[in-house]
Amino acid sequence: MTRLESKGKHPDTGQRLWKLHLLKVEAAILRGLPEQLRQLLANPDNNRPVVDRLFPVSYADPEEERENRRLLGQGLLEERQHLLDLMDAEMLRAEPSESQTDSGDQADQGDQADKGDQAGVALELDAAQLDLWLRFVNDVRLVLATDLGMDSADSGPDSTADPQPPEDPKRALLEYLGGLESILVEAARQDF
């Protein structure tokens, strides 16, 4: 499963370095997400609630908000698209990892029969790359939660009135990404 391995500190910057390990199936899912978001952003009228969540209002006053969007809207969209391009490149950086146990600090990862399932990919992350991953994973979570109707104050992950069955693939992905984000943010905060 997903884990983040400490690789010490960069000799020049002093920032911490990490190695993110992903199962092949996890990597395959993550690899497809930037393009899915790209398609979504390319068709805002068909995905209005999600797009509105990614680009919330800045002003309560409609006139001020309209002017703000006129001045900044295109730049904000391009920034989001650029983030997806960077994540495409991140996915290409991932290299095959022999097993999930190569650091020795994860003692029990299953026997040899499970090794094929445990094999995956890994990539090193510095602070800037951690930040990139965090923003991307959080964006996907916002999209999924909005799509699942979990974006209002009384319908979040803690709500008892969640209408989505637990086996819903989108919900499963949302939960997986929540776990991944928790791992990433815990690491990122160590540089503060």
């Binding site: 930040d131 979990m150 943010v185 905060r189």
Partner: peptide, 17 residues
Amino acid sequence: WDDPVNLQSYVVYVFQR
């Protein structure tokens, strides 16, 4: 504003950053 989706630890990270 409060948001039921963003993780508390992530919000703290963003504020620090």
